[in-house]
Design a protein around this nucleic acid. Structure first.
Length: 446
RNA sequence: CGGGGCGUAGCGCAGCCUGGUAGCGCAUCUGCUUUGGGAGCAGAGGGUCGCAGGUUCGAAUCCUGCCGCCCCGACCA
């Protein structure tokens, strides 16, 4: 993309309404625009990152055999009356009536609807196991939305639901989700720690929240520092292997890690003092096994091998997709702007032409631009007639992980400059070498 | 939902107390000079002062009501 043809309304000054760094940077980098309290338009740059995150979530879910579908944002009140949550939910649920005076709502979640779908079509244990998920906009009419996309009213969420014959199978689905989540967050450059969570009004013993450590996190968390040394990495895993998935769960949840809701001072005290940590965290996902409650209320039953009708064991598993942009920025920025991890960056590299209009620099930039594209990369070429300082400031603000600087000074020596946004370190090299280096960096990521 | 604050140009703000033809910086446009970390000079355009009533010869300014947004707390992915 050529910056002269892009839509990137960056702001030099920080809008007054933004308090936390991710919100400020998203506004300044021209990623979002607020349209009402907790409701945002996603401008091209923000939309690109959102789509990138969504894509990673899709890929990791599908690797585990989970099936994508799409349910509507608007729902009829009927299903919610059946489950009993229509009254239980309270004013957070946005309700309205259509022209025929039918009660409708903007879905805050989809347990009822997915259960209705499964109840309608699945009647034999042979159709199991089954995990369906979607990535869809949700609405929760928060009393006090804040922190930009971290706590909006409208938000994009991946919610997945597993349907299994037995508790054992459902717990395998739970473990499977834990593995997919570990992989998903790592691909986004995040360390998200699974912490034992409060199961809330639904009840049940099996639930973990995934938290990204950040000073601006809303939850207070307590953990054993050993847990931050764990990474899933690129190890192979067979999602159908129950023992293997169980082992991952045990590996990642055996150390103390809890939010303040479930914090236990006595258990925490048993950790060696030098490993005890308390910090703040941003919740970016939750996995939950809750048994047969919804399947019983909504009639999701199958006939088992003995010919008995039994309710399905269910769990639901969410990832806050839009919130993740905020979380990633909170975890990865400096005083100049955002620093995108390579896995989610909107553009793979920025090309800065220091002397727009100069035949040699223009030609070198075009060559870079075409060369990177030929390698399957997407560069953002700053071809505006701006001064160097402005171009650098924009690149730093929008956070592309790599920048190639092309100026007359370097070209005389036959080199361009490749700079890491994260470390600030620059290296001079030939133009083709820069293309090859970037292709190498993104191998397996882009 | 309790407490506090703010709505003036795209963004950041002053003006309001003490009523008298709406201002500054950034951004935008034009010209010239500049050109490796948000340049300089000269000029230009852009505002229903959140909305509605009221007081007044006259309201951004005073009064009343409403709307929107933000912050702290309680709550939540």
């Amino acid at each position: 993309m050529r910056l002269s043809r892009y839509f990137l309304p960056v702001l030099k000054e920080t809008p007054a309404e933004a308090q936390i760094v991710s919100h400020r940077l998203m506004l300044r980098a021209g990623m979002i625009r607020q349209q009402a309290a907790g409701i945002y338009s996603w401008l091209p740059l923000g939309y690109k990152v959102l789509k990138r995150i969504e894509q990673i979530v899709h890929e990791e879910q599908q690797k585990a055999g989970h099936l994508p579908l799409l349910m509507p944002t608007l729902q009829s009140a009927e299903l919610w009356q059946k489950s009993g949550r229509y009254d239980a939910y309270g004013p957070e649920m946005l309700r309205f009536t259509d022209r025929h005076d039918r009660e409708m709502l903007y879905g805050p979640t989809n347990e009822e609807m997915i259960t209705d779908i499964v109840a309608a079509y699945v009647s034999s244990y042979k159709a199991l196991p089954l995990t369906l998920y979607h990535i869809q906009w949700k609405f929760r009419d928060e009393v006090r939305p804040r922190f930009g996309v971290m706590r909006g009213r409208e938000f994009l969420m991946k919610d997945g639901y597993n349907f299994d014959l037995t508790k054992e199978d459902a717990l395998h689905a739970y473990n499977r989700h834990l593995v997919t989540y570990l992989r998903t967050y790592e691909r986004m450059g995040l360390q998200a720690i699974p912490m034992r969570a409060d199961s809330g009004p639904i009840g049940g013993d099996y639930t973990h929240e995934f938290l990204v450590l950040a000073e601006t996190g809303e939850s207070e968390v307590f953990y054993d520092s050993e847990i931050t040394e764990l990474t899933f990495g690129d190890r192979a895993i067979d999602y159908d292997d129950k023992a293997e998935c169980q082992a991952v769960l045990e590996e990642f949840t055996s150390r103390y890690a809890r939010t303040d809701e479930t914090h236990d001072e006595a258990a925490f005290g048993e950790i060696p003092e030098e490993r005890r940590r308390s910090a703040r965290g941003i919740e970016v996902g939750q996995i939950f096994y809750f048994g047969t409650e919804y399947s019983e209320k909504l009639g999701a039953m199958v006939t088992d091998a003995e010919g008995q009708k039994v309710p399905l064991h269910m769990g639901s598993h969410g990832i806050g997709v839009s919130r993740l942009l905020g979380a990633i920025i909170e975890a990865s920025h400096d005083d100049k702007g955002i620093i995108w991890p390579e896995g989610v960056t909107p553009f793979h590299a920025g090309i800065v032409n220091l002397r727009q209009g100069d035949a040699a620099t223009d030609a070198a930039c075009e060559q870079l631009y075409a060369g990177l594209q030929a390698k399957g990369l997407e560069p953002l070429y700053d071809d505006r007639d701006e001064r160097a300082g402005g171009k650098f400031a924009t690149m730093d603000l929008i956070g592309l992980p790599w920048r190639v600087t092309v100026g007359p000074r370097g070209l005389e020596k036959g080199v361009v400059e490749l700079t890491s946004r994260k470390t600030g370190e620059s290296e001079e090299m030939g133009l083709e070498a820069a293309i090859d280096r970037l292709a190498q960096i993104y191998e397996g990521i882009a």
